[in-house]
Structures are given as structure tokens and as C-alpha cells.
Nucleic acid binder design. Structure first.
Length: 868
RNA sequence: GCCGAGGUGGCGAAAUUGGCAGACGCGCCAGACUUAGGAUCUGGUGGAUAAAUCCUUAGGGGUUCGAGUCCCCUCCUCGGCACCA
């Protein structure tokens, strides 16, 4: 096929226009105070999720979002906006390093090569990126500022009163005032416990095959998200970021964002705010209490036993000597099991009695304390009060081990076994007769008065495990001295990783950086932190660096940040952010949550002007292979953009990416579909260009400057309207369909009015920019109105008076079924419509011998006769 | 199990406030032009039927003059979470 002559000569002109756009800096957006900056112009920041440059290159799935944003960017330029549309590379992190290990190439070499490959692929598609703003997370000039932001996190704490991050210095001086007698070391310990970036020894997700720990978000079903290797829990000393401090703000400030509701729900579920109470149970014969969290404090009188997680610190003390052997056996069994195995056993409840008892604070009854793996150490307090009458899990456990079941809530309709809904309290002393919400509130008040409980909110969200035992990541700007961590000065940034030849995992928990003996030791005896940051670090703020990628003195230029991130509502400029952010759902709880967290910290400390980074978010759907399966190398169904550009051209690729269906939905690729839009582009070409006897392309002889017919006028203006409106709602597929209708209409015209073609070319320009520029340029040789480049024309405006006709077709129904169609004057009144309908021959036939009960007439639409 | 998104011709899909179901494209069929067609142009194309007509938006019920669209139930597909107290 490639031997065949192309239907239009895209190979001759695509690179020509790409070069011209570059040379003339057509899509360079000036910042405030820069030459060419035009203050009255509105701004528009349209952003893609930047890729990590893998060795595989791009496939057509990546390009769907990129094409959509490019069309919007070009459209906004034509609408008179100053458009920020940048691209860069998320080049640190596990995938890049795994690839490097596989191929034996140093990550820096492989990364540079992959970036070059990705960039040339993107350039061939004619995206209007402002390449002067390109950023690379592995560039020292970039990660200097990633490290700088880490220092801000390290040197801040979360003030619960203000619900905001504040410099840790404030905390130190405050502490000094409050506890003047405290030693420096004690004060440091206190401060270190409050930093937003802190070190802790905690059970973490260790993946031996990857040689690193992983964040909760990176572990799926007990396996690593990258590679699918087994992950086990083990205690290790790690860096954490205190994202949990922001849980409420991450939830509440999510509400006003223009994001898909489904993504908001994913984030809400991940944060998992749960409102209830803590209650304290004293342990019999021990001077100790077990604190539990419950969302149903109203069922306290129904708590007939307690369960501790096997790892709970009080298990040892509670266990009696008779039960110790059984408890130890159970705990040992649990310790060897991975999280996956533990949840797999979920079908059948297991557990062991500790021999110990606690006192139910509500009724002073003695209740047994068990341990069971259905109680998780990582949630709530790691201990529960079991209410088998009103909780499914407690019910199953109580049934299995013959524990007492007591019902304390009367359900609205009688149920067997257990009832988890709301009802009326019973068998609950002073709560009896109260509906659930009132009972909850009353028992909490009572607990608080007794000093044995309080209102409490728990979250599923855990602090963010921020260190990795990897080579290819940002080094921490931290050194250790006398087993204490210390921040480096800003002037020491960037901390550049040592040029290791052997950067593979060590096979132990020691990070690869431990191999760089000389790099580790500083002259003053301090040693460097050996962990590196996770992949997500660089992507937490890249959208800010795009604003001023070469700024040397600050992570982002202040004026430029205020300009590009500002909201469009004058009344609330804090409600700003990127105007349109397009990317896949896979980042719903990882990147999008982390980036929001960093942004809020930067906002609190006064470094950025908006509380949220991304005002409007759109998720593009996945593109499946032609076999309806997920595109993957192993299935052999990957479609590369290179072959499409070669065969059909960049414009056909762009157009098909948008024509195959709505942006948000999952849909399969089809090669014959590509041919379809390719044929459409060829029809546009032939609308303007003919082939002469010698086989050369020349302007068509059918072109002319003639008056448009009413019908043509209507097609032109309804196309302007449809394309404009569909672009605003990102309905690219239907916009293209309308342009096809336009072309079908004018293909059959004897003389093709140049004015109409000019409008079509402008509308098509954001979609198929190369073809349009070429035709525009060729037309400019013989016709007026084609000065400059097509992409610099202003967007056309439709006029309603050309949309309508004097006559409209009216549908006549009998009992809701279509019986006839008539053409009448537009806006004909109801009474006249009824007369017209009754006069119809078909209606008279159908209603003969029957009575017309009712007539519904909707002007310009239909008449429905109800007949018996 | 829970939460979310979906289910419309042979295929990808359209369808303001409920108002002609299937726009547009692919595929298929026929014709034209051609030495030729895997190019192009023109016409046709949801299903059943000889036809008038009837049926048709996963399935069932409901509201309505009128339902792809609103309400209730069931089934299926995809995505997320998963003993979260």
C-alpha cells in the first residue's frame, strides 16, 4: 500500500508546516512582562499528564488525550487566548530504572534516548506544544527544586488550629516558651515528630524483587503495581510525608472542583473519612485500657466481647498464662502470612481467646478479649468492641466461637441474624427508645462526661511512604550526623546522584547508593541519606515549572504563576489552577492526590496563589486493540503512531483519535476507521485541488466567488455552531461528523464558493492543521482572504438567521405512532397545527369511525392525536 | 460483598427540556467512469414480510398523549475498593 500514490500529498507538506510553526514560534506563549505579552488577552492553561519515556515508544492510546488537548489549545489560540500548552518528561522512577537494568544501559543514557524518541514521535503529529517550556524531571535544574520543596515539607509542621502548614521555626519558638526547661535534644525530638516529612520505623510494603519499599497506593492484591511481584510487610526505617494532616482539606476542597464525579468518589473513598467515637474499655486486673474506634457508639450496650489485632501491643499483657501458647501460635502463623493470604482466608473467621477480660463502660459487664486477624492493626486503633447483633463480621465470629449475641437496636422490620441499619435503641439503659442518630449523640456525650470516650474521626488514608531503595530517583537533601537527620542548605542544591556504574538493587535492604562510598561521606563527618524519592515526586509540581522552566532563583516565577494559575472568577482567584487537565483514570488516587497535597503545602507557605492545582479534570478512556483487548506488547495488538503517520499522515491519525468515540469512553481501535477519516481528508483536499493531465496538483477550476444558496448558508452556519459548541464540551467525534456533512454538501456543488471553503478550513484547522495550512496557502495564491497562517485566523461566529428555514417538517402521530409528516410554516400556532393534522389524508383514514379524544400539538415538532 | 461507569444495527457510534431511534463513519450491495480498481463519484443498507404493515435501544414492570431518555426490579460487561469496625 505504501507504494501506492497517496490521495493527497501529505508527506510533502506535513514536516514543512511543523518546521514553520517552530521557526515562527507560532505557539509560544509569552509570560507577563515578556516581549509580545498582551495583557487584555485572557489566558488558558491546557495540560496533559506528561509521560514517563519508556523504551517502547508511544502507542496510539497515549495520543488520545494529547490530541484532544492540542485541538483545544489551537482552538483557544484562534479564539484569542494566550495559551499555555507545554510538554515534558517524567523520567525518574521505577519503570525507567527497570528498563535500564533489563537493557544494561545506564538509566541516564536510556532516558535521554527514550526522551528523544518520544519527542520526535510527538513532533511528527504536529502538536502545538511550546517546546521552549519543556521540562525533564531528571534534569538537575528541575530536581533541584523538587529537593527544595522537600526541604519546605521537612521544615514545616501542620498547625491543627489554622489547619495549615507553617514553618517549623514557629513551633520551635512556641515550644521554647511553653517548656523552657526542656533540653535541646528533647525539643528536637518533639519537633521531629511534627514535621511534614519525618522518619519512622514502621511496617512497610517491601518488595524483594524490586529491591524497594512501596507506598500503599502502589500495592495491588499483595503484589507490586509495577511488575506484579510479591510484597511483604516488614518493619523498616523510612521517610514519610504527613498527608493525613491534610485529609479533611483534601476532602472538603475537592467539592467545588470541575472534576468527573467518579474521580471525586475514588478520592473520597481512598481518604475514607469515617465519623464516630473512641471508647475506652478498662482491662480487668490490669491498670490498662483498650481504646476502640466505632461508628456505632449507640450499640455499646450490645458489645459482648472485644477483639484485638494480632499485632496489637497490649496482647502480651492481656493474655493469661493458660492461653499464652495458643496466642503465640496464632500470632506466629499470622506473621508469616502476606496480606494477600490473610485476606484470602476471609471466608472463614479465625481467632483465639486471650484469657483476659475487659469492662464494658456502658453496663460494667465483664466481656472476653480475643485476638483475630479480621481486625486490622492499620485501621482505627487496632482494636474493636464486637457487637455481633449489629455487625456482620462480629456476628460470624460470635456464631463460630459461641459468643453472646445481644440485640440493642430494634429494626424497622424484623430481621434474622444481625441488623446493621438504623432503628430504635433497646436493651440499652438510658438510650432505650432513641432513634440511632440521637442515641449516638447521647452516648458520646455520656462517654465524654465519664472520661471514657470521645467523638472521633478516623481515615483510611495513611501517611505517604516517601523513600525508595533505588538509584534512579531524586536524592534526599538530607544528611545524618550522630544518628540524627539534618536538612542541607538551599545553597547545597541540587544534590546530584553519584555516577554509579552498578546501580542494581543490592539484594539487601541497603539502597544502591550505599555503593557510592566516596559520595556518602561528607568532609565534616556527616553521611548522606541513601534513599531516593519515589517517582511521584517530580510529577507533584511539574505543571508549576512549565510556567517558568528556566527560572533560576525560584521554583516558579511569582508573577507568571499568578497569571497562569489564576481562576476566572474575579471574586475568588484562589479557586484557580490549570484550566483543563486531561489524563487517564489510573492516576485518580496516586498522582492527583499527591499533587494536591504538595500544592496545598506550597499554598499554606505562601509560594503559590491557588489552593488547588487542577481546576478542570477530564479522563480520557482507554483505547483497546483491534481485538477489543487492552493494548499490550504481549498480546501483539499495539498500534504505533509511526506506521499510521507513514501510511495516512498525521492529520488522519489526529482525526481518527477523535472520531472513534467520546473522549471519556473506552473504545477499540480500527484500521478501517482510520481509512475512513483519511478518505474524508482526501475529499477536503479534492474540494480545493484537482489533478491535471500530468498528474500535478493544481487549484480546482470549480472554485468561485459566488453567492451561497440558502441551503448552503444553512450548512455553513450550522457547522460553525455545531463545531464551536462541541469543542467547548469536548465532543470531538460529533464535531467531525458535522464537518463531514459540510463536505458532502459542497462536493456535489457545481461551483464551490471560496467563502464557504474558507470557513470550513478554519473550523478544521485545530483538527487537521497540516492539510488546512497547505490548502490555505495554495488558495492565497489566487484568492483574497487567505493572508497569514490558517492557525492564526480568528474563529468564525455563526448567525442564527442563517440557521432556520421558513418551513419545518411536522410529525403527525396517532396514539404516539408515526402516521404522517407535513411541511408547514415555521412557528405555526397550536390551533392551526391541529387543523393541518386533521386535514391529513392518512389521519382521516386512520381515524375513520373512531373518536379523537385529545390532540397534543407542539409547535415546530409534532402533533399527536389520541384516538379510541 | 460495596462503590462507580456502561449495555442502542454486522462494527465504531448519534439522539436540547421526554417528541421522527440509528446522524456521521466503517463494512456490505448496486450502478457510473475506467485497460484495470484495493482509486473516485452516485444511490441503497436496523429486523421480519410479497406487500400494506408489524417489531426494535440488555430483560421485565411502571409513570405519560408520547420513554433510548424519568421511576422500580432483574441480568450482563468494564473500572475501583475489599474483614475499614
Amino acid at each position: 500500500m505504501s507504494e501506492r500514490r497517496k490521495q493527497f500529498p501529505f508527506p510533502d507538506f506535513e514536516s514543512k508546516w511543523q518546521q514553520l510553526w517552530l521557526e515562527r514560534q507560532t505557539f509560544h506563549a509569552p509570560n507577563p512582562y515578556e516581549p509580545g505579552f498582551d495583557p487584555p488577552k485572557p489566558k488558558f492553561y491546557v495540560l496533559d499528564m506528561f509521560p514517563y519515556p519508556s523504551g517502547e515508544g508511544l502507542h496510539v492510546g497515549h495520543l488520545e488525550g494529547y490530541t484532544a488537548t492540542d485541538i483545544i489549545a489551537r482552538y483557544k489560540w484562534m479564539k484569542g487566548f494566550n495559551v499555555l500548552h507545554p510538554m515534558g518528561w517524567d523520567s525518574f522512577g521505577l519503570p525507567a530504572e527497570q528498563f535500564a537494568i533489563k537493557t544494561g544501559l545506564h538509566p541516564s543514557v536510556a532516558t535521554a534516548r527514550n526522551i528523544a524518541r518520544f519527542k520526535s514521535q510527538l513532533k511528527k503529529i504536529g502538536f502545538s506544544y511550546d517546546w521552549a517550556r519543556e521540562v525533564t524531571t531528571t534534569d538537575p535544574g528541575y530536581y533541584k527544586w523538587t529537593q527544595w520543596i522537600f526541604l519546605k515539607l521537612y521544615n514545616s509542621w501542620f498547625d491543627p488550629q489554622k489547619k495549615a502548614a507553617r514553618p517549623v521555626d514557629d513551633l520551635i519558638s512556641r515550644r521554647r516558651l511553653e517548656f523552657p526547661e526542656e533540653s535541646d535534644d528533647e525539643r528536637r525530638d518533639f519537633v521531629d515528630r511534627h514535621r511534614l516529612a519525618y522518619v519512622t520505623e514502621a511496617p512497610v510494603n517491601w518488595c524483594a524483587d524490586l529491591g524497594t519499599v512501596l507506598a500503599n497506593e502502589e500495592v495491588l492484591d499483595g503484589k507490586s503495581e509495577v511488575g506484579g511481584f510479591p510484597v511483604v510487610r516488614r518493619p523498616m526505617r523510612q521517610w514519610m510525608l504527613r498527608i493525613t494532616a491534610y485529609a479533611d482539606r483534601l476532602l472538603d476542597e475537592l467539592e467545588p472542583l470541575d472534576w468527573p464525579e467518579s474521580i471525586k468518589i475514588l478520592q473520597r473513598n481512598w481518604i475514607g473519612r469515617s465519623v464516630g467515637a473512641q471508647a475506652m474499655f478498662s482491662v480487668c486486673d490490669l491498670n490498662n485500657v483498650i481504646t476502640v474506634f466505632t461508628t456505632r457508639p449507640d450499640t455499646l450496650f450490645g458489645a459482648t466481647y472485644m477483639v484485638l489485632a494480632p499485632e496489637h501491643p497490649l496482647v502480651d499483657q492481656v493474655t493469661t498464662s493458660e492461653q499464652r501458647a495458643a496466642i503465640e501460635e496464632y500470632r506466629a502463623k499470622m506473621a508469616t502470612k502476606s496480606d494477600l493470604e490473610r485476606t484470602d482466608l476471609a471466608k472463614e473467621k479465625t481467632g483465639v481467646f486471650t484469657g483476659g477480660f475487659a469492662i464494658n463502660p456502658a453496663n460494667q459487664e465483664k466481656i472476653p478479649i480475643w485476638i483475630a486477624d479480621y481486625v486490622l492493626m492499620s485501621y482505627g486503633t487496632g482494636a474493636i468492641m464486637a457487637v455481633p447483633g449489629h455487625d456482620e463480621r462480629d456476628f460470624e465470629f460470635a456464631k463460630k466461637f459461641g459468643l453472646e449475641i445481644r440485640y440493642v437496636v430494634e429494626p424497622p422490620v424484623a430481621v434474622e441474624s444481625y441488623f446493621t441499619g438504623e432503628g430504635i435503641a433497646k436493651n440499652s439503659g438510658f438510650l432505650d427508645g432513641l432513634p440511632t442518630p440521637e442515641a449516638k449523640s447521647k452516648i458520646i456525650d455520656w462517654l465524654e462526661k465519664q472520661g471514657s470516650g470521645k467523638r472521633f474521626t478516623t481515615y483510611k488514608l495513611r501517611d505517604w511512604l516517601f523513600s525508595r531503595q533505588r538509584y534512579w530517583g531524586e536524592p534526599f537533601p538530607i544528611v545524618w550526623r550522630n544518628s540524627r537527620h539534618e536538612a542541607l542548605c538551599e545553597s547545597d542544591l541540587p544534590v546530584v546522584p553519584p555516577p554509579l556504574d552498578d546501580y542494581r538493587p543490592t539484594g539487601t535492604i541497603e539502597p544502591p547508593l550505599s555503593k557510592a562510598k566516596a559520595w556518602i561521606r561528607l568532609s565534616d563527618g556527616a553521611t548522606r541519606e541513601l534513599n531516593t524519592m519515589p517517582q511521584w515526586a517530580g510529577s507533584c509540581w511539574y505543571f508549576l515549572r512549565f510556567i517558568s522552566p528556566n527560572e533560576a532563583n525560584r521554583f516558579v516565577d511569582e508573577d507568571a504563576e499568578r497569571y497562569w494559575m489564576s481562576g476566572n472568577e474575579a471574586k475568588n482567584r484562589r479557586r484557580g489552577g490549570v484550566d483543563l487537565y486531561v489524563g487517564g483514570t489510573e492516576h485518580a488516587v496516586l498522582h492527583l492526590l499527591y499533587a494536591r497535597f504538595w500544592h496545598k503545602v506550597l499554598y499554606d507557605l505562601g509560594y503559590v496563589s491557588t489552593i488547588e492545582p487542577f481546576h478542570r479534570l477530564v479522563n480520557q478512556g482507554m483505547i483497546l486493540g483491534q481485538d477489543n483487548q487492552k493494548m499490550s506488547k504481549s498480546r501483539g495488538n499495539v498500534v504505533s503512531p509511526d506506521e499510521i503517520v507513514e501510511e495516512y499522515g498525521a492529520d488522519a491519525l489526529r482525526l481518527y483519535e477523535m472520531f472513534l468515540g467520546p473522549l471519556e469512553s473506552t473504545k477499540p481501535w480500527s484500521m478501517s476507521g482510520v481509512e475512513g477519516v483519511y478518505r474524508f481528508l482526501a475529499r477536503v483536499w479534492r474540494l480545493v485541488i484537482d489533478e491535471n493531465q500530468e498528474g500535478q496538483w493544481q487549484l480546482s477550476s470549480c472554485l468561485g466567488t459566488v453567492q451561497l444558496s440558502t441551503k448552503q448558508q444553512k450548512v455553513v452556519h450550522s457547522t460553525i455552531k455545531k463545531v464551536s459548541e462541541d469543542l467547548e464540551s469536548l465532543s470531538f467525534n460529533t464535531a467531525i461528523a458535522q464537518m463531514m456533512i459540510f463536505v458532502n454538501e459542497f462536493t456535489s456543488a457545481e461551483i464551490r464558493p471560496v467563502e464557504a471553503l474558507r470557513t470550513l478550513l478554519i473550523l478544521l484547522c485545530p483538527f487537521a492543521p497540516h492539510l488546512v495550512e497547505e490548502l490555505w496557502w495554495r488558495l492565497s495564491a489566487s484568492f483574497a482572504g487567505f493572508e497569514g497562517m490558517a492557525c492564526e485566523q480568528s474563529w468564525p461566529v455563526w448567525r442564527d438567521e442563517f440557521l432556520g428555514e421558513e418551513e419545518v417538517q411536522i410529525v403527525i402521530q396517532i396514539n404516539g405512532k408515526l402516521r404522517d409528516k407535513v411541511t408547514v410554516r415555521k412557528d405555526l400556532g397550536k390551533e392551526e397545527l391541529e387543523q393541518v393534522a386533521l386535514a391529513s389524508m392518512k389521519v382521516q383514514e386512520a381515524t375513520r369511525g373512531k373518536s379523537v379524544r385529545k390532540i397534543i400539538a407542539i409547535p415546530n415538532k409534532l402533533v399527536n392525536l389520541v384516538v379510541h
